[in-house]
Nucleic acid binder design. Sequence first.
DNA 1: TAGATTGTTAATCGATTAACAATC
DNA 2: TAGATTGTTAATCGATTAACAATC
Lengths: 211, 211
Amino acid sequence: MAERKISQAIIRRLPRYYRYLGELLENGVERISSLDLSVRMKVTASQIRQDLNNFGGFGQQGYGYNVKYLYTEIGKILGLDVEHNIIIIGAGNLGQALANYTNFEKRGFVIKSMFDTNPRLHGISIRGIPVRMIEELSDYLNKNKIDIAVLTLPKTNAVDVAKIVVNGGVKAIWNFAHTDLHVPSDVLVENVHLSESLMRLSYNIANTKRG
Amino acid sequence: MAERKISQAIIRRLPRYYRYLGELLENGVERISSLDLSVRMKVTASQIRQDLNNFGGFGQQGYGYNVKYLYTEIGKILGLDVEHNIIIIGAGNLGQALANYTNFEKRGFVIKSMFDTNPRLHGISIRGIPVRMIEELSDYLNKNKIDIAVLTLPKTNAVDVAKIVVNGGVKAIWNFAHTDLHVPSDVLVENVHLSESLMRLSYNIANTKRG
DNA sequence: TAGATTGTTAATCGATTAACAATC
DNA sequence: TAGATTGTTAATCGATTAACAATC
């Protein structure tokens, strides 16, 4: 559609628009102006209009935006209208936490299997999702089309496992391991480095002047 | 020290520098040039020098940067040289995952207590960290100096709990609930919205052209 | 000293905000 | 129609990169 290059800054904001629109929808709000939304979201109305217009003219002069329509359209832009098959590699606390989080399924992210090195977890299942041994991973990927691999394992294993999933045809990695992954340019990596997030908070505690 | 305003863009990069320097240190590397580091980190040398010079001249012409010194200094900038008392509110999978993550302790983040609504968790402890009932939270905060509250609970409770911790004198909130918190301006919030992270990945899967 | 590399200024690039004509 | 509000262009602001004099 829009052929212009969308910056990551904009992409970063899209899910937040989606969340706010979802809440408005739940509250039965039918239409909203960029100004009204900007007040709620604490951003500028200009930014909202600029962001949305990268993807098309979703609004109408004198009216604003239809909440339901815009919500649906942003959902499509975010690829939430198609199903994504996911596996979680690392069935520790964090992996299990993600497996138990049912909201992902609602958005089309279907968790097909988990993998772990720990033989004690062999054969168990979490919310119906089976835990397999890491040795089966490569074979499993050959037999099943998996879009996203979630890496919730120690950084020492992350690099090797990333290689396996890339070879297995996975397009995208959601990386919770505390290391950067170097993968071919057609494989996407989204990092969630929790310790870095906590350090930013710590920085701001140390450097914020208080009255 | 440096009186100029540090942008959040720079702060966002600091923990990554810290991680790379920590790894260099582990590998026995004594000194490194901005160019050498830039290649490893896949950023420009210019950016590294600009970033660091916001906080002082840590390098030396013709030599580069002393790894250990720079690592220590960035640690100080990030506030990792002082202890932070933490509580985790919400002892579900994610809360327990964070409680079990011992690396936080190494960086001076000491988890003092957890809180939950579930009476079944009453009296148990995770890695020595006691789980208390949410009713005790307000009283606990009056008796203990807590710097950071981690919110790993459903969004329906997050707003109310945020009020309680703010009233209890907590300076900073690490928010994993899927909602924005509105707190007084002297209270910091660092959001970790996992579902938004996953949507960004999904967007990029849908919109990346592949050869 | 000569070579290397920083610290820092200047140039460029990109993102955000403001403004307003178009139009519902 | 008049009023409201978008879509979009232009202006501003900030962040990144380039360049190089300073200096170890």
